[in-house]
Design a protein around this nucleic acid. Sequence first.
DNA 1: TTAGGGTTAG
Length: 695
Amino acid sequence: MLLIALFILLESMRGLASSQTSLSLLKIISKTKNLRLGKSIHAKLIISNFCDIIESNYLIDIYAKCGHLTSARQVFDLMPNRNVVSYSSLMAGYFHDGCPSEVLSVLKIMSFDELWPRPNEFIFATVLASCSNMQAFKMGQQCHAYVLKSGLAFHSYIRNVLIHMYSTCSGVEDALKVFHSMPGVDVISFNSMINSFLEHGRIWDAVEVLNNMVSDISQWDHITYVAVLGLCADSEDSLLGRQVHCQILNRRFETNLFVGSAIVDMYGKCGDSSAARSAFNELSCRNVISWTTIMAACTQNARLEESLKLFVEMQVDGVQPNDLTYAVALNTCAGLAALSNGNSLNAHVEKSGYKAHLIVCNSLINMYSKSGSIEDAQVIFVDLACKDTITWNCMINGYSHNGLGRKALETFHDMLVEEVGPTYVTFIGVLLACGHLGLVDEGFYYVNHLMRNLGITPGVEHHTCIVGLLCRAGLLDEADRYMRTTHSEWDLISWRTLLSACQTHRKFGLGKKVADYILQLYPNDVGTYILMSNMYAKANRWDAVVKIRRLMREKSIKKEPGVSWIQVRNELHVFASEDNQHPLIDNIHKKLAELLDEVKAIGYAPNTASVLHDVEEEHKEGYLKFHSEKLAIVFGLISTPSGAPIHVIKNLRMCDDCHIAIKLFSKVTNRKIVVRDVNRFHCFQDGLCSCDDYW
DNA sequence: TTAGGGTTAG
């Protein structure tokens, strides 16, 4: 209806140059952002050879709002005289088009304007917002000084944009000063302040602002709800989140796209992926962000296959992925070690131009290093001209997890040379590398000196690395003492690290003590029972093994069945131990028998000690034969061209026998075999493993 | 005639 009315008006203008009519039309077009009509009016005005400042300003505004900055700039450049609105309209256009630096260059042109239009609150609102986007703190401060002197600082728009500028460019304290400096803060100031605290990880300060807001502001707007949902997500408070969700439904704010995505995100971060999925299904409208949010919610909650399915559904729905969607999808592939999916995503990223985005490259490095293709991760890393802390962390941790300790430490050294500040995460990779290389003193130097000098408090992950480092060096009593004397929130992983070392180093006395202690804290931990059982089997203490098995039966503790999977030509093949389901199982068994004969000839002897005592001696070898990783690897060998690397993932820790056998498989088949078990990567090549037989 | 705060990632 509106369009028809506009056309009638346009027709009535034919042959006329009524300024009043064109202004009325321009006003409506500016509101409705109708580019086609805007162009028609523009043409009429050119033909009539008359276009005053206000009409030109409207044209700039229309073109700018429709994202046609070249046309907006053309109108602006051809104006014989301009006023402050001409400048502010063009600046707002550049700002919304993602070109904050252009905003500042227009400000420069403005200062040379002979008519010297005085910059007003509209100009500074946009200039300060641009400073925020560009992290141009000095410029932002200068603008702050100007608006204070000129009295413009009392406009609520200016105050709010100043809060945002300080929050992004300097710190939350400066933002807070602006917030408290002037009376009459509005809902936007409160929203900005809450978000500012949340961005800086200060949840309780955000809660305090929210409490003050309850008494000062009677009505929250939809952005307040987005901020409060962010607060629930950050504090993982799903109960409060649910209450807020109910309030949103009462006020019918859930139809807002931002609110809708924030609800999905809140449930995802609170660990309730089912509620996230339901909230997503209820959304009346979905954009790339809502899709990316639900994918992230699934990935964060281990629903990895579902996340990749959503990625496909999203595109079927006509929504194109953006850089963050690719980052989530690649992270999902990393979780699944789905190298071929990751490779195809890499190709899409190249085609779509998102390879220029650092977060995508960081995710590619992460995906490749977690999928056992550390060489591909390295290629991307080396090619990257601009790296951030996360890039360095991904590469250092990638090298460490793949057993390349020396490379990890070299990269850490390069990071320091490039003057990129290491973080909490960096030192996890660095300490793991020290563990691989047996650098005990260096490990202690990093934890006790360098980290503390940099103001990073070592956490349980770092202390666990030190335990691993001592264990690997055979210093188990020191590791035990370290755990008992160092104040840390030791968790199951830390204690299992020590127990596992006791098993490897055959320190049965200490192992028994540690296992008893773990079972006091975690009475039903399957991993501890299995490690104990393996430990006693190694000591030929079959009576103890039987006792543990009986105890497990009594407590109904079941060992998770071993499962391995391999992707061949985009298809996932899953193998369970003693599995006969695969269509090629006969070929797999035949090839496995041949291979075992071949490796026996060069020294392989089945390690039957790791098989249960209650299995007859002559059947023990058979049990070992059918471990899931052996089946998956042999399937890989017969299904891929010679020389192609084999990538297998296993849900449990690899057993000693498989480790020895696979080392020799890599030698006799001349293949690189990468196995990601529940703890680490094993890269088998030429009869050796990257873990140096310690895992 | 022109302006502000908000959802997704590693």
